[in-house]
Design a protein around this nucleic acid. Structure first.
Length: 440
RNA sequence: GACCCCAUCGUCUAGAGGUCUAGGACACCAGGUUUUCAUCCUGGUAACACGGGUUCGAUUCCCGUUGGGGUCGCCA
């Protein structure tokens, strides 16, 4: 029998990381065994399940590369089928109508638990069981005639031919009810696997207030989809050896349900950031340039007159300092702005130091006359100058760095000068001198 | 409260009775490389929640305690 898994979110406008992680595991499992991965939109809450909310689910999945087999099933289209099954259950005596003590106005349909213990083997948690007296009957059709989650969920899984239900830990209790429905229908239940929750530092379910909680937020912050995918996959699962940075394909090859842990875990943003850097190293310069450009546009830092060659040179120069696409705009904005601000502390420490401005003037003279203007030539010229002035390189490097970038941190000074070019470098030093230099 | 689940460094984890004086990764600290920043290299701090069993021997198996979580809707 072909394995078929599914992701069954209710479109609310946001896709929570815990939820998408369930999707990732379903996808990984299906791909690993050569099965199918399907999508079902549980859109019965018509108010929240807007077209946009559905699109958000689709976008998040596409971004992470979770390709779906078959056509997505919209639960709202299955109502007739749900009611049909409810009637069947009523007819076979597995459900009954109730009208007293109702929350709603009319009659509701209640599923009758079988009165015996129910147990099943969870693919990650092992054998689970529940005593008959600890389970009670539950409503499957509301008094307004609409099917309840348990009914729709099970019926749709049957309709879709789902063989493995991989979902969050918060569904384990529901599973006993669901299995009872399968039994009442005379159908074999699928295999179940319940994944541990992603929690915050307090051990509570990870939520919006704990930081970025939705897929879209990670995308906006400049994270790579493969990095988020990798990190989320590793939250509760590990291949068994010390392998951590993996491609989707590697994970597909290695993924098995029995290596999924059963304890909740926390998402560490610092490690996610590191992971992102690792995946960034695996991308080519072209992709990084494109990613940085897109990020700067989102940040509102992109300028229409940007020289593509210069932009590319800057990205290349920043190299592995870029951990996130948004880093370029946040840490290297000075490259693109001739009116860049000066970091006060660096100015005090490097520029206003005894003799620093005099050295800077000498450097200006040397650089203005330098030809060609490369990382090697500027390096050599400044070393020669240091020798001539009887100063250490540190005395020349620090003021110059602040003069051309406004800050004490950044790429290597000589690479930076070469990228900026002579004219820009000279103009920046002159600007600095006009601001901080004492009148000669 | 009832029922169910969980428990290894700060965090993510490896470990399926001896190979564990518990391994890796992130973070952190120190040293080295580097004229600066970052990278990089080397080293270091840091954990089996507790108590009982079982066993020649428990991180690993069982029970209990403690702690944490989930569920107890005509929400999904």
């Amino acid at each position: 029998m072909t394995v078929r898994t599914r992701f069954a979110p209710s479109p609310t406008g946001n896709v929570h990381i815990g939820n998408i992680r369930a999707a990732i595991y379903n996808w990984l499992f299906a791909r690993h065994v050569g099965g199918e991965f399907w999508l079902r939109l549980e859109d019965t809450d018509r108010e929240r399940s807007t077209k946009e909310a559905v699109q958000t689910v689709l976008d998040s999945m596409a971004w992470l590369g979770l390709d779906v087999d078959g056509e997505p099933l919209y639960q709202s289209t299955q109502r007739a089928r749900h009611m049909e099954v409810a009637e069947q259950l009523l007819a076979s005596g597995h459900a009954y109508r109730q009208d007293k003590g109702c929350t709603g106005k009319g009659e509701c349909v209640v599923f009758q638990m079988p009165g015996r213990d129910i147990s099943f083997h969870d693919e990650v948690k092992g054998d689970l069981s529940k005593k008959a007296e600890d389970m009670k009957d539950f409503v499957i059709v509301r008094s307004d005639g609409s099917p309840v989650f348990h009914l729709g969920n099970v019926v749709d899984d049957i309709t879709m031919g789902i063989t493995h239900v991989i979902r969050g830990d918060d569904h384990v209790e529901n599973t006993f009810k669901h299995i009872a429905i399968y039994h009442a229908l005379g159908l074999p239940p699928p295999k179940f696997a319940h994944l541990p929750m992603i929690v915050n530092a307090q051990g509570k379910p990870y939520s919006k207030r704990d930081g970025a909680a939705y897929v879209g937020e990670f995308q906006e912050r400049g994270f790579l989809p493969e990095a988020l995918f990798n990190s989320l996959a590793l939250l509760g699962w590990s291949p068994g050896d010390d392998l951590e940075v993996m491609s989707r394909e590697e994970m597909v090859a290695l993924f098995t349900l029995d290596r999924v842990r059963s304890a909740p875990s926390q998402l560490d943003m610092t490690k996610l950031l590191w992971m992102n850097g690792e995946h960034l190293k695996r991308r080519g310069l072209d992709e990084i340039v494109a990613g940085c450009e897109a990020a700067m546009k989102r940040q509102g830092l992109w300028r229409e007159d940007m020289d593509p060659a210069y932009f590319r040179a800057v990205v290349s120069c920043m190299g592995e300092r870029i951990k996130l696409f948004t880093d370029l705009g946040e840490q290297a904005a000075f490259f693109f702005n001739e009116d860049f601000a000066y970091d006060e502390k660096s100015v005090r420490k490097r520029l206003l130091k005894e003799g620093a401005l005099d050295i800077l003037r000498e450097e200006l003279a040397v650089l203005a006359a330098l030809e060609p203007f490369t990382a090697e030539s500027t390096d050599a010229a400044l070393h020669a100058l240091a020798e001539r002035m009887g100063r250490g390189m540190g005395d020349l490097v620090h003021p110059l760095r602040v003069a051309v970038s406004g800050t004490g941190v950044g790429p290597g000074l000589f690479e930076m000068l070469a990228v900026m070019g002579k004219d820009r470098s000279v103009a920046r030093i002159q600007r600095t001198l006009s601001i901080y230099g004492t009148p000669a």
